[in-house]
């Protein structure tokens, strides 16, 4: 019974792949065929020839990749300071950060759009990347993890004459590897799938990430479901591959507070 439920929940993905691989006459066949008779890559060929999907995928990798890289660095730095160091204002700052965790991102959409317009970053990659660096889930995650690390190693390093930066770089960062892996997967997935911010910030279709690109395909191919499902398949496959490679970290990410479905 469970297996049936599992297969049913996978069915939309199966249906997506099957439609993308079906010749046009099968896509509109009545009744629809759930088991394939004939498979073809025609849709994929058409998609790659008539749309900038490859460009969109590259854009997405760049945008999500850069955001993830900065989050790993900045969040581990801030998480370390909040977890292990004493300084005036620490608790107020951390409280401010945590209190915005449940604020729906769309609340900041219009003001962020105004800021980017004022500084001339609308329709640029930095305009999409910078707001992505402001979400604070990672700070919270890193703080919680670094708190559990023993302080003796830091003290020993300081006695050996290590600078504060070296303590972070050579002691804290290597020990935080498990949390960094979870953070990397979580952040990359989040920005691979981001939609409303890039939709609002970017104008030039050549700069679109793949999700925004897919939504424009919807307008272009309207009822050509074979093409639409092929676009969706091309966007789905990389994320599914990442999931199979790093499954453990996805599941761990949910347990530390990243439920999204």
């Amino acid at each position: 019974m469970l297996l049936v439920a599992g297969l049913l929940s996978l069915f939309p993905l199966y249906w997506l792949l099957l439609t993308s691989l079906s010749p046009a006459q099968y896509v509109v066949k009545v009744p629809p065929e759930v088991v394939p008779r004939e498979l073809t890559f025609t849709n994929y060929q058409r998609l790659f020839e008539t749309t900038p999907i490859v460009r969109w995928l590259v854009n997405t990798v760049v945008i999500a990749g850069v955001i993830t890289g900065f989050h790993l660095l900045f969040d581990s730095m801030a998480g370390y300071a909040f977890a292990k160091r004493r300084f005036p204002g620490r608790d107020v700052m951390f409280w401010l950060v945590v209190s915005t965790l449940t604020v729906p991102a769309q609340v900041t959409l219009i003001p962020v759009f105004f800021i980017l317009r004022t500084v001339g970053l609308l329709d640029t990659y930095p305009g999409v990347i910078l707001p992505g660096l402001a979400d604070v889930f990672g700070v919270f995650l890193m703080k919680q993890f670094i708190q559990t690390l023993p302080s003796e190693l830091e003290q020993a390093a300081r006695l050996d004459g290590a600078s504060e930066w070296q303590v972070y770089r050579r002691i804290i960062l290597p020990l935080s590897r498990p949390a960094l892996a979870v953070l990397a997967i979580f952040t990359f997935q989040r920005y691979w799938n981001a939609f409303i911010f890039p939709l609002v910030i970017l104008r030039d279709p050549a700069k679109y990430p793949v999700q925004v690109g897919l939504a424009t395909l919807q307008g272009e191919f309207n009822t050509d479901f074979g093409m639409l499902m092929t676009g969706a398949a091309v966007a789905a496959i990389p994320m599914i591959a990442v999931f199979f490679l790093f499954q453990r970290y996805f599941i761990e990410g949910i347990r530390v507070g990243g439920v999204k479905g």
Partner: peptide, 23 residues
């Protein structure tokens, strides 16, 4: 089973909505 049930959720809301529109 955890992985099986989580797999469909790694995809974006846009992509999922496209499939449901088709269904």
């Amino acid at each position: 089973y955890r992985a099986l049930f989580y797999l469909p959720l790694v995809n974006s809301a846009i992509l999922v909505a496209m499939v449901w529109r088709w269904i």
